[in-house]
Amino acid sequence: MRILARLCMTADGYVTTPDGWPPQIIDPTHGPGSHGVAEFLRTCEAALMGRTTFEPALAADRWPWPDLRVFVLGSRRPEGTPEHVTVDDDPVRLLERIRAADRGGDVHLIGGPRTIETYRALGVLDRLELVILPYLVGSGMRLTDSFDPATDLEFESSRPLPGGSVEIVYRVPSKH
């Protein structure tokens, strides 16, 4: 089981729009599986995220993770959370629950930056994939505001994506 973070960010470094939405929503090429996410998800069996990322899914027209087990790091279970979703406020205990449910696939660690940094600091983040979008938004949340600047990243690959985006993949060496 590998823990893989993949997120879109604008060319000026924001992982959300000024109003808090994922920046890919401003890209006309955005849709189910766009920005390389369909390929990425082929190896994933679970999704791990913080409560702030999870809660908007409860009001979505369709469940965003139909084929994945969902784990949420949060201090409370949001109203309307399906029973099959695991919620825990302790990142280590939640990781143990993910490992106990492991069937050999990867875990998609979905932003925000604080949740990604929590698991990077625990030494369990294996890969950070960034999709750089050809847009500038001027404000929002930056990935780097939450990440430890001493984080080592080892370049693994890059490739252009339709619509002018670029995927950059880094391996995150474990310090533990």
Rank of each mutant, 00 (worst) to 15 (best):
V85E: 03
R77E: 06
F71L: 03
V15Q: 01
P162A: 15
G20M: 13
D27V: 12
T29F: 11
L130G: 07
A47Q: 07
I26G: 13
L128D: 02
P66Q: 11
F40T: 08
D67M: 11
D106H: 06
H30A: 15
G36S: 08
Y135A: 12
P113Q: 05
V72R: 03
E83A: 13
G105W: 06
S157Y: 08
D12I: 13
R171S: 05
Y170R: 02
G140A: 13
G50W: 01
A60C: 06
Y135L: 14
I25Y: 06
T52R: 06
A60Q: 06
D106A: 04
G123H: 10
P28L: 15
F54W: 06
L143A: 14
F71N: 05
V87W: 01
L130P: 02
L41Q: 13
R93C: 00
I98G: 04
E129T: 08
P23D: 13
P22A: 13
D19W: 11
A100D: 04
H176M: 09
S146C: 09
D61E: 12
V124R: 12
L125Y: 12
R93A: 04
V107N: 09
S165K: 04
E167V: 07
V85C: 03
L73H: 01
L41W: 13
E39G: 13
T151V: 12
R127E: 09
V37Y: 05
G111S: 07
P64M: 09
W63V: 01
P173N: 07
D88E: 05
G140F: 14
E45K: 09
M9R: 06
